[in-house]
């Protein structure tokens, strides 16, 4: 009986992974062909960026239960690092973008002691982190950060390369989260999320595990910021550290379902497409309608789309990452 169950499990796992990797393959082929087919690069870039942001947020929030309200701090740091390196220091974007990821990791390390806090206290302290960084960028010498006017990359803006860079980072983020579900670290994070004390009693290094999740999360968010700077070419302290970026990330991730691999992806895709649809059809009311849809979604599906599906139809768990 138990060997039958484990055989079933192994089969379900194979199906799950086949479906998941198949989906990633389709995504890569589809998105990869957009520039070639002269599709709307900005729309698909935006989709990739938000899927990556939601996925990276899922690493810290979904796997560990920590909600960083100041998540935009890493995004903003990545934006400024890439922009300063390209436009002021005159470094190639192929060096500036990875450097932007590193900058996010360094900031995350600097603020790692805040992981000792829990719940709302951590959430608020992380929010203050974003505000502090925004003020630093505004107050720093204008020769470096452009002051309140920000920076403009002008002719360094290379959309197509930025587009493919975003695709690479998206795939890397999805691969990382997939790996987490199967890895010891992922299992440790889930245990910590469910009961940190029990996890500690079982020999899991709670602080180190949380730190790894925090750093991974920061890495992808700051890469998103760096590539965004490369793609759009214009940034300033207000938009680079806009609290709405955190808000959208949280909403997209939760709409799909935190703690699952597919949830943030599905949530982001559905909401971005719905947003695109109503924006075109309702030029004046689109923001109101989008807010209404999100409110209803959270009200009736508090676990997110995937989370609710798995709760109502437990057999789905076998097929969904």
């Amino acid at each position: 009986m138990s060997s039958l169950t484990s055989m079933d499990e192994a089969k379900a796992s194979r199906i799950r992974h086949t479906l998941w990797f198949g989906l990633i393959g389709v995504v890569v082929l589809w998105f990869g062909s957009i520039p070639i087919l002269d599709g709307n690069q900005s729309l698909y870039f935006s989709l990739m960026l938000w899927v990556t942001m939601a996925t990276s947020f899922n690493i810290i929030a979904g796997f560990t239960g920590y909600m960083p309200f100041g998540f935009v701090a890493f995004y903003g740091m990545g934006t400024y690092t890439a922009a300063i390196l390209v436009s002021i220091v005159k470094v190639s974007p192929y060096i500036a973008i990875p450097a932007s990821g590193l900058a996010g990791v360094l900031i995350a390390l600097l603020f790692a002691p805040t992981l000792r806090l829990g719940g709302i206290y951590f959430a608020i302290v992380s929010l203050s982190l974003a505000v502090i960084l925004q003020r630093i960028m505004g107050l720093a010498p204008e020769d470096i950060t452009g002051g309140s006017g920000g920076l403009n990359l002008g002719q360094h803006t290379v959309r197509e390369q930025g587009f493919y860079a975003m695709l690479i980072v998206l795939v890397a983020a999805l691969a990382t989260v997939t790996w987490l579900t199967r890895s010891r670290l992922g299992k440790a994070l889930r245990a910590i999320r469910d009961d940190a004390q029990a996890a500690d009693a079982m020999g899991i290094n709670v602080q180190r595990s949380r730190l790894y999740a925090w750093l991974l999360s920061a890495l992808f968010a700051s890469l998103c910021g760096g590539i965004q700077a490369w793609f759009t070419g214009a940034l300033d302290p207000v938009t680079a550290f806009d609290v709405l970026i955190t808000a959208k990330t949280v909403i997209y991730a939760m709409a799909g379902g935190l703690g699952t691999v597919t949830g943030p992806v599905i949530g982001t895709v559905i909401l971005v497409w719905v947003d695109e649809l109503i924006w075109r059809q309702f030029p004046v009311l689109n923001s109101f309608l989008l807010g209404l849809i999100i409110a209803l979604l959270i009200l009736f599906m508090p676990r997110g789309i995937i989370g609710t599906l798995m709760q109502k139809y437990p057999r789905c768990r076998r097929l969904i990452m």
Binding site: G39, N40, S42, S46, Q228, T232, A234, W279, P283, N286
Partner: peptide
């Protein structure tokens, strides 16, 4: 043809590309 940018800098490239391509 006027489209909404929601005062959002990150939306602007998407909107202008929509105006140009679509």
């Amino acid at each position: 043809v006027a489209l909404d940018d929601r005062s959002d800098k990150t939306m602007v490239p998407r909107v202008y590309e929509t105006l140009i391509k679509d």
